[in-house]
Simulated scan of single mutants.
Amino acid sequence: MKMKKVVVAMSGGVDSSTAAYLLIKQGMAVEGVFFVLFDNPSNLELAAQTARFLGIKLHIKDLREYFKEKVIDPFFEGYSQGITPNPCIICNRYIKFHVLAKLADLTKAQFIATGHYARISKENDNVFLLKGVDNKKDQSYFLYGIDKSLLNHIIFPLGQYTKDEVKKIAETLDLPSKVAEESLEICFLREKKYYEMMKAASGPIIEKSTGKTVGQHGGIHLFTIGQRKRIGVSVGYPAYVVQIEPSINAVYIASRKDAYMREFYVDDSNWLCEPAENKFKCEVKIRYAMKPERASITLINNHRLKITFDNPQFAPTPGQSAVFYEGEKVLGGGVITELVQDS
């Protein structure tokens, strides 16, 4: 019987390296691919060492130009317009899985895989994206933008494991990547602060409750909704950024309670489970590190939605994603674009 073939994204880190090993252990023919996303990428040598250790071929794909166009440039442009992009979601949606699928076609592989902590479930003719079993490490939030047609060809070998179990496997095997440091939240910044790499015009900091200008900022790129630190003004109470208005280059501040909002709009939505009705209830996450909360979803058109939480949530942030869940199942998601103030 011919072995099933899989192409796995290998960053040189513990997770993707262990994922490759587990696929081999499952009896699959495995080939790895390292994506060069920016100059002098870290862990390329570790990925190569791990591939040699596992006895598999490693492809190297230079995606620097594409990554700059789709991820890096929109990241800085977003901050300059007062929004807070999520580059990992953008990369997964528009680059990583599409390139893996193309390489799978070229190498005649039936499957693609990554080291994400998430699961794929198949029920009859339906395929679903599920949360990983490790609640602390579940990465399904970053994966809602995957093309639904790819789900049937994706394997997430780590979805059934905890992070501690994965580390133990790597250490027991003595994988070269066991020494790799945890990946950075924004890989291309290399521990630099994004705001140190940008310059923008100064503008007013306005107290929302009074409309008074209480200070000046050095550029709206320095701020995100819900921010408490580095505001640079004193108003007699703990102040939070609650609104950024690029049209007048203004940052609005208020108390923490004013950063809680119930309603906002989402655009550029992607569905992994098509909604049966134009309005329905589910659970929603508006950031990776939060517990999903109950909300109503109202479909306005094919890509625009209105989200109404049962209870106001802290700092929904334009540019970040809202991801929809039904229990363990990811229904879909989209990008937060417009807040409904004073809702």
Rank of each mutant, 00 (worst) to 15 (best):
K5M: 04
V8G: 09
M10F: 06
S11H: 08
D15E: 14
S16G: 05
S17R: 00
A19K: 13
K25S: 07
M28S: 09
L37I: 14
F38P: 00
D39N: 09
P41G: 08
E45A: 08
A47I: 06
A47T: 01
A51R: 04
I60R: 12
K61I: 08
F67D: 02
E69S: 15
V71T: 01
I72N: 05
G78V: 02
Y79K: 14
Y79Q: 14
Q81N: 10
R93D: 02
R93T: 04
L100H: 10
K102V: 06
F111T: 01
T114S: 02
A118D: 02
I120R: 00
S121T: 04
E123S: 11
D125N: 14
L129T: 03
G132I: 05
Q139W: 09
K148P: 03
L151S: 07
N152P: 05
H153V: 10
I154T: 04
I154K: 01
L158K: 14
V166D: 00
V166Q: 06
T172W: 12
L175S: 03
S177H: 06
A180Y: 00
L184P: 05
L184A: 05
K193P: 00
K193W: 06
Y194G: 03
Y195K: 12
A201P: 12
A201N: 15
G203Y: 13
P204Q: 08
I205C: 11
I205G: 07
I205Q: 06
I206P: 01
I206N: 08
S209R: 13
G211C: 13
K212G: 05
T213A: 13
Q216D: 15
G219E: 15
G219C: 07
R230N: 14
S234I: 10
G236C: 13
A239I: 11
Q243K: 11
N249C: 04
A250H: 12
V251W: 11
M261T: 06
M261P: 01
F264N: 01
D268W: 00
N270G: 02
K279D: 01
K281E: 08
K281G: 02
I286V: 01
K291P: 02
E293L: 15
I297A: 11
K306Q: 13
F309E: 09
F324M: 13
Y325V: 10
E326R: 12
E328P: 02
G334Y: 01
V335K: 01
V335H: 00
V335N: 00
T337W: 01
V340G: 13
V340I: 13
Q341R: 14
Q341K: 14
S343P: 07
S343G: 07
